[in-house]
Nucleic acid binder design. Structure first.
Length: 756
DNA sequence: ATTGTCACG
DNA sequence: ACGTACGTGACAATT
C-alpha cells in the first residue's frame, strides 16, 4: 500500500502516510474507523476516507489503464490540472465518490461526500463484523422508509434535479404497470442521491375506476422534460438495478439515458455461479440487498399483492408507493457504493467495463427494434399443424385401443409399457416411466408404430403451442413487431438468454420446424442478414488447449469433423464423421465415458478407448482438462480468455454426482464463456462501426449465441457485409490474439429462414 | 411450484 | 449407489 498514496498529489488533511498506516494496521478503512472512536467525525474522518479512496484510486490506475476508457492520459493525472468534468465522471463511475468534492474548488453545495459519510460516529461497542461482505458497511445508516420524499411539485422536482447534477451520481428506478418494457406504462420514477436520501416522483398514478380521485402529481410530459437533461447528461452517472429495463421505458418517452452503471451486472461480473448453502446466488435486488447490505427490502408482492388480487403499481396509494419505489433507488445506490469498489478487488473490472457494460445500451436498442413476423404465415402453419395433430391423435388412440391424454408422460408411459408391454425401463425417483425422445425412438426401432406417431404428435404440438401460437400473441400492437427481452445475467457462463418470447430457440433442425423461421421477415425494401461464427467453440478449444492438429485444420479451412474422423478412425465417411462430431461435442461439454457411450450406442469401455485415442491424436486436450480442473478446484472459479469468472462452489463436493456435474460444467465454461465474450465485444463495436461506415440504417435485431441477425435496406447489403464480417472476425483483438481464425458465414434473404 | 419434455447454440 | 454430456426458456400436466 505504501506504493500508492504518496504518488497522488493534491489532497490535504491527515497525511497520506498516517492514513495508510492506520488503514494498514486495521486491515481496512472500515476497521480503522470503527477501532478509532477517538477520531472525531467530520473533517478528519472525511480526510481518512479520501485517503482511502486515493489509495484505492492510485492502486488501480495501472489496472484501469488497461480496462477502462480514461478521460485523460494517465501520466498527467493530477486532480487539479485536468479537465474537471471528465474527471468527475471518471471518479463517479469508478466509485471514488468521496474525492468529488475536491473538484470545482469546493463549491460549498452539500456534495455527495457529506451524504456518503453522515456525521454520525460509528458505534464504538458494535460487534466486530465477520470478514466478508454480508455486513452493512459502518458508514451507512440503516434504511429509513420514513425519510423518503414524494415529489409532487415542480419546485421540489427541480431541487432534486439540481442536487443530482451536483452529486454527479444518481440511482434511478422506474415503476411501471408491467414487466414487459415495450408495453408497460410509466407509473413513476424514483431517484436516490445517498443513503435514505431518495424520492419518488409519481407520474401515472390514479384510482382503478374513473371516479377515484387522482392524486396530486406533476404532469408526466413536464416532469420528463425536466428530467431529460439530467438523465442524458454525460457528467452524471445513472445507476440502476437491471437498468436496461429503465433505459427502454425512458427511451419510449424520448429520453436516451446515459451513461449508466448496473448493480445487477456488477454483481454478475464478480459472482456468477457463486452461491452458498441457504444463500441464493442470484443477482436480483432483494437478494443483493440481503447479501451485501444485510437489509430486507419491501417486495413487489408486499405492495401490489400477487395472483388474481394483484393491482398495477399506478393504483398503489402514494405513501406506500413512495416507500417501495424510493427504497429501490436507495438500495440500488447503496449496492453500487458497496459493489463497484469491490469489482476491481475481485478482478471483475475488465470484463465489466470492456464487455458487459458497453453492451447494455446496445442490447436495449436491439430489444426496442424487435423483429417483424408474418402473422398470416404463422396462423396458416398453426392450422396446418392442428389438422395433422388431430389425425395423429386418432391414430394413436386406435393403436392404443383407448383415448387418453397423450401429453401426459405418466399416462403415456403406463399405456406403452404396462398395457402394450413394450420394453423400456423405469426411471427416476418418481418411479415413472421415461417417455422422452431417445426412449420413443428406441421403441420405434423395435417396430412400435405408436411411438413414431407420438413423436410426430409431440413435435407438432410443441411447434404449435410454443411457436406458431405464442409468436402471434407476442406481436406488440403498438409496433407490429416482436420484442424479446435479453437477460444479461441469464447464463452463468456469460451468455445472454432470451425470454418473453425466447427468440434463441426458434426451430431450424427439422424441415417442418424450419418453416417457422420463414415467418421472421424484413420490412418491405429491406432484407434480413444472418452472420454466424462457424464452429467457434471448437476453434476456441483448439486455441485454448493448444492442439496443433486442430489449429492446422482450422487454418487450412478444413471440415473439422472430417479431420477428426480421419485422425480417429483413419477414414472419412458418413458414419465416422458423425461419430467424430459427437466426440468433438463431448470434449466441449466435459467428457465422460458413460455419456459418450450412451450417445454413440457403445459401451463405456469402448467409449473410454475412443477418449484415449482422442487425447492421443489431439495432445493438449487432456492437459487443458487437467489444468482447468486443478485451477477451479483450488481457486473456486474458472476464467475465460477475457477474464470472466464463473464460480463452481460444488467442485469439491463429497457428493460425486454433484462434483462430476461441476467438473463437466467447469471444463465447458471457459470455452462457452470466451465465445460469449467475443460475440458481446463484436456487438458493442458493431453500432459505431456501422455508423462510421455510413450504415446508420442497418439495425442489429437478434443474437443467438454465435449468430447476429440484422435488418437493412437491400441497397446496403454489399457495404454492410464486409463491415459486419470484419467486426465479428476481429472481435477478440486487441486483448486476445487467437491462433485460429474466426470464420464468419453470412447470408441474406427476405426471411430469417432464407438468410441461412 | 415442480416435473417432464423439447426447442435452440 | 449414484447417473451423466454443457448452457438456456417455454409449455402442458400434475402436485
Amino acid at each position: 500500500m505504501g506504493d500508492s498514496v504518496d504518488n497522488v498529489p493534491g489532497i490535504r488533511g491527515i497525511g497520506p502516510k498516517t492514513a495508510t498506516k492506520l488503514i494498514q494496521e486495521h486491515g481496512s478503512l472500515e476497521a480503522a474507523l470503527a477501532a478509532a472512536p477517538a477520531m472525531k467525525p467530520g473533517k478528519l474522518r472525511d480526510s481518512m476516507i479520501e485517503q482511502a479512496d486515493m489509495a484505492r484510486l492510485s492502486r488501480r490506475l495501472v489496472q484501469l489503464k488497461e480496462d477502462c476508457p480514461l478521460p485523460m492520459p494517465l501520466d498527467e493525472f493530477k486532480l487539479t490540472a485536468i479537465p474537471q468534468e471528465p474527471l468527475a465522471t471518471f471518479l463517479t463511475e469508478h466509485g471514488f465518490t468521496s474525492l468529488l468534492k475536491r473538484l470545482d474548488g469546493g463549491r460549498g453545495s452539500p456534495g455527495p461526500a457529506t451524504q456518503l459519510h453522515p456525521e454520525k460516529p460509528v458505534t464504538a461497542g458494535a460487534p466486530a463484523a465477520p470478514q466478508g461482505s454480508r455486513q452493512p458497511p459502518p458508514e451507512m445508516p440503516p434504511v429509513d422508509l420514513a425519510a423518503y420524499e414524494c415529489v409532487q411539485t415542480l419546485e421540489a422536482l427541480d431541487r432534486w434535479i439540481e442536487r443530482a447534477f451536483a452529486a454527479r451520481l444518481v440511482a434511478v428506478d422506474t415503476e411501471t404497470s408491467m414487466l414487459d418494457a415495450m408495453r408497460a406504462d410509466l407509473a413513476g420514477i424514483s431517484l436516490a442521491l445517498g443513503p435514505n436520501d431518495a424520492c419518488y416522483i409519481p407520474l401515472g398514478h390514479g384510482g382503478s375506476d374513473m371516479f377515484a380521485e387522482t392524486p396530486e402529481q406533476i404532469a408526466a410530459p413536464l416532469a420528463l422534460a425536466r428530467l431529460k437533461p439530467l438523465l442524458e447528461s454525460d457528467a452524471v452517472l445513472k445507476v440502476g438495478q437491471n437498468i436496461k429495463y429503465d433505459i427502454n421505458i425512458l427511451a419510449r418517452h424520448d429520453i436516451l439515458m446515459a451513461p449508466v452503471d448496473d448493480t445487477m451486472i456488477v454483481s454478475f461480473a464478480m459472482d456468477a455461479g457463486r452461491s452458498e448453502e441457504g444463500i441464493g446466488g442470484g443477482h436480483g435486488m432483494d437478494e443483493l440487498a440481503q447479501r451485501h447490505l444485510g437489509h430486507t427490502t419491501l417486495t413487489f408482492k408486499d405492495i401490489c399483492g400477487s395472483g388474481k388480487k394483484a393491482i398495477p403499481f399506478g393504483e398503489v396509494p402514494l405513501d406506500r408507493a413512495t416507500r417501495y419505489a424510493a427504497e429501490d433507488a436507495d438500495v440500488t445506490w447503496r449496492l453500487h457504493r458497496v459493489l463497484k469498489p469491490r469489482l476491481a478487488d475481485e478482478g471483475g473490472t475488465r470484463i465489466y467495463e470492456r464487455v458487459d457494460r458497453p453492451l447494455i445500451p446496445v442490447v436495449a436498442q436491439m430489444e426496442r427494434h424487435g423483429i417483424k413476423v408474418d402473422r398470416e404465415r404463422l396462423a396458416q402453419l398453426s392450422s396446418e399443424f392442428a389438422k395433422s395433430i388431430a389425425e395423429l391423435e386418432c391414430e394413436v388412440y386406435g393403436l392404443c385401443g383407448q383415448e387418453f391424454t397423450i401429453g401426459s408422460p405418466k399416462q403415456l408411459g403406463d399405456i406403452l409399457f404396462d398395457k402394450l408391454g413394450y420394453k423400456g425401463g423405469r426411471k427416476g425417483k418418481s418411479g415413472q416411466y421415461s417417455t422422452d425422445q431417445a426412449i420413443l425412438e428406441g421403441l420405434a426401432a423395435q417396430g412400435a408404430e405408436v411411438a413414431t406417431k407420438v413423436l410426430d404428435w409431440r413435435q407438432l404440438t410443441k411447434l404449435r403451442s410454443t411457436y406458431t401460437e405464442a409468436l402471434q400473441a407476442a406481436i406488440n400492437p403498438a409496433t407490429g413487431r416482436v420484442h424479446t427481452s435479453y437477460s444479461l445475467v441469464g447464463a452463468q457462463t456469460g451468455r445472454l438468454s432470451s425470454n418473453d418470447p425466447n427468440l434463441q430457440n426458434i426451430p431450424i433442425r427439422t424441415e417442418i420446424g424450419r418453416q417457422i423461421r420463414d415467418a421472421f421477415v424484413a420490412e418491405p425494401g429491406n432484407v434480413l442478414l444472418s452472420a454466424d461464427y462457424s464452429q467457434i467453440e471448437l476453434r476456441l478449444a483448439a486455441h485454448m488447449a493448444d492442439v496443433p492438429a486442430l489449429k492446422e485444420a482450422f487454418a487450412a479451412g478444413e471440415d473439422i469433423h472430417a479431420r477428426t474422423a480421419l485422425e480417429m478412425f483413419g477414414e472419412v465417411n458418413r458414419d465416422t464423421r458423425g461419430r467424430a462430431k459427437t466426440i468433438n461435442f463431448a470434449i466441449l461439454y466435459g467428457i465422460s465415458r458413460w455419456g459418450l457411450g450412451g450417445r454413440l450406442g457403445v459401451g463405456a469401455d469402448e467409449a473410454q478407448a475412443m477418449i484415449d485415442r482422442y487425447f492421443e491424436r489431439f495432445p493438449g486436450i487432456q492437459r487443458y482438462i487437467v489444468h482447468t480442473l486443478e485451477s477451479v478446484r483450488e481457486r473456486g472459479y474458472s476464467e475465460t480468455l477475457f477474464g470472466r469468472k464463473t464460480w463452481f462452489p460444488r467442485i469439491n463436493s463429497r457428493n460425486q454426482a454433484e462434483r462430476s456435474g461441476s467438473e463437466r460444467a467447469a471444463i465447458n465454461a471457459p470455452i462457452q464463456g470466451t465465445s460469449a465474450d467475443i460475440i458481446k465485444r463484436a456487438m458493442a463495436r458493431m453500432v459505431p462501426a456501422l455508423a462510421g461506415a455510413g450504415l446508420g440504417d442497418v439495425r442489429m435485431l437478434l443474437q443467438v449465441h454465435d449468430e447476429l441477425v440484422f435488418e437493412l435496406p437491400e441497397g446496403d447489403v454489399a457495404a454492410a457485409k464486409p463491415v459486419i464480417e470484419r467486426v465479428m472476425a476481429e472481435a477478440a483483438l486487441p486483448a486476445v490474439r487467437l491462433e485460429v481464425p474466426l470464420g464468419i458465414e453470412i447470408g441474406t434473404g427476405p426471411s430469417w429462414g432464407a438468410a441461412h
